[in-house]
Design a protein around this nucleic acid. Sequence first.
DNA 1: TATTGTTATACTCTATAACTATA
DNA 2: TATAGTTATAGAGTATAACAATA
Lengths: 174, 174
Amino acid sequence: MASPQKTSRKAAGTRAAIRRARPASGRAHSGDAGDDIGLDALVGHAGYAVRRFQLWIFQDFIKTLATVDIRPTQYAVKNVIGANPGLSQMAVAKRLGIERARLVHLLDSLEERDFVSRIPSTIDRRSHALHLTTRGKAALAQFKRLAAEHERHVAEKIGKANREQLLRILACFT
Amino acid sequence: MASPQKTSRKAAGTRAAIRRARPASGRAHSGDAGDDIGLDALVGHAGYAVRRFQLWIFQDFIKTLATVDIRPTQYAVKNVIGANPGLSQMAVAKRLGIERARLVHLLDSLEERDFVSRIPSTIDRRSHALHLTTRGKAALAQFKRLAAEHERHVAEKIGKANREQLLRILACFT
DNA sequence: TATTGTTATACTCTATAACTATA
DNA sequence: TATAGTTATAGAGTATAACAATA
């Protein structure tokens, strides 16, 4: 890593100088309030609400499992391997919709932490059979308890019945 | 795109052969089927379903608006500026939950395409008042029509009533 | 001192392409 | 030829930190 050099700050006029003209029309841009800023067509888009919800969920998941340093995707991978020992990397990647190239790195870090082991397949020597280690199994049990706690946060946020409704609506995507 | 072939389902004889020579423990990792791979605790997690749903939604949005080369975040930014002309960058960033450093680049590209203009504020000379250009306004109208088409895809996928239920449940996140 | 817009860096995630060793 | 795992690269997206101009 090179030293954090700070590329001589060029005189500030470059960009700002270009914008030195017309006065503004429209609102006197309240830069802070934000309460009365409308979303227009965005309010009718499921994707917008879903994106905001997903950001909230992931943040809470990461925070709730911060003590064990496990992120949502790592948790998903461990779960599937734990429930289906012997799976190949391709099978896990396809099942979870992860790129196989990305799964390589995910497994690298899980293997480094002694949670997962790649066992050479006796059937197809190109592939690996994925298993949880003893340590990985114990860890997963703990992660599941913390993840359940996170799930209770979700229920608190949107309501118990709404959460169940949501799971029902989106069941076709799992 | 043009993802041509879909791995021609080769006869069940292959899988039968695999079953024959089962390795030490676990399944003989069926690398292709994926139908019987359980998700375990993942099925009870709203975050997992929401993540998969969001991926599907964004992919459909990008595909549906591919002809105009607009991504979900760009669309959201244009929408908010169009509905609230004169807003500062900070106000837009806060409203949409985008980092202000990231909004700089988003606006750079929208400005290059002559959709948005940064007008120096007469009130606070640190900030810019954001406006849609004439071209930007016309373009946004077209984007909204395409986005509505995308929204119809969502309704087809999960059902009209379910989509509305979803919007109601997640209204607190917008 | 604090804030706005900007630049820069680092790390995650997604999407490819290419390589190897097998099949 | 095709597939499994790997490596590499490029682009978004996220999270910070620092800086100049301004408040």
